Amino acid sequence: MRHGSRPILALTLGLPLLGAGPPPLTEVSVVVTGLRNTKGQVLACLTAQPKGFPDCRKDPAAKQAIVPAAATVRINFGPVPAGRYAISLIHDENANRKMDMALIMPKEGYGFSRDAPVTMGPPKFDKAAFDVAGTAVEQTARIRYLL
């Protein structure tokens, strides 16, 4: 009798797992404003890793996009799992796929999700981070220029 109840117990315990499926995904996009011209392109990075912000090369799971520069640019990163994310942006005016510098000052424009302020270097992840869960998320970021 005892032996016969084990399969039923195992089957009952496994039932909640059958319907679990993958976690829901949420669309994330950013509207980029403030470009001083339409030269080049906009480089965008969406990361959930503080160590991968603002440089996506440090996060192999980061979503990246490159779009032509325009007066206003909308970048759709597609669906992502729920979590906390941050976006970094570069107006790559000469289309060389990197931030050009003049000594230690950026020569090209940059921006971050939540319009995170910049003081002596890029903002920390927490200043630019936003939560993603359920409803589609659209951030707005203004490009800034120092030179």
Rank of each mutant, 00 (worst) to 15 (best):
A102H: 09
S88D: 07
V118K: 12
R84P: 02
P7S: 04
P24A: 14
T47F: 04
G78P: 04
S113N: 05
R144V: 01
G78I: 00
G111Y: 06
P24F: 09
A136Q: 11
G78A: 06
G21N: 09
R36E: 13
K98M: 09
V31C: 00
R57L: 13
M101T: 03
D131W: 11
R114S: 08
A116S: 06
L17I: 10
Y145I: 06
R74Y: 01
S88M: 05
P123W: 12
R84A: 13
K107C: 01
L11P: 01
T38Q: 12
L13V: 13
D115M: 07
I90F: 03
V31F: 00
R114Q: 14
S88R: 00
N37E: 05
E138N: 11
N76G: 13
P60H: 09
V67P: 02
L15A: 15
F53Q: 05
P23L: 08
G34A: 00
F77P: 01
T72D: 06
A82D: 07
G78E: 07
A82W: 11
K51W: 07
I143C: 00
E138T: 15
T12G: 11
G40S: 06
V42K: 00
A133V: 09
S88W: 08
R97E: 11
R97L: 12
K51M: 08
S5R: 12
P23M: 11
P60N: 08
A102G: 05
V28P: 04
D100S: 10
H91Q: 04
D126H: 11
A71Q: 12
G134A: 04
F112D: 01
R36F: 10
P106Y: 06
L11D: 06
I75C: 04
S5K: 10
N37W: 03
G14D: 04
V67M: 08
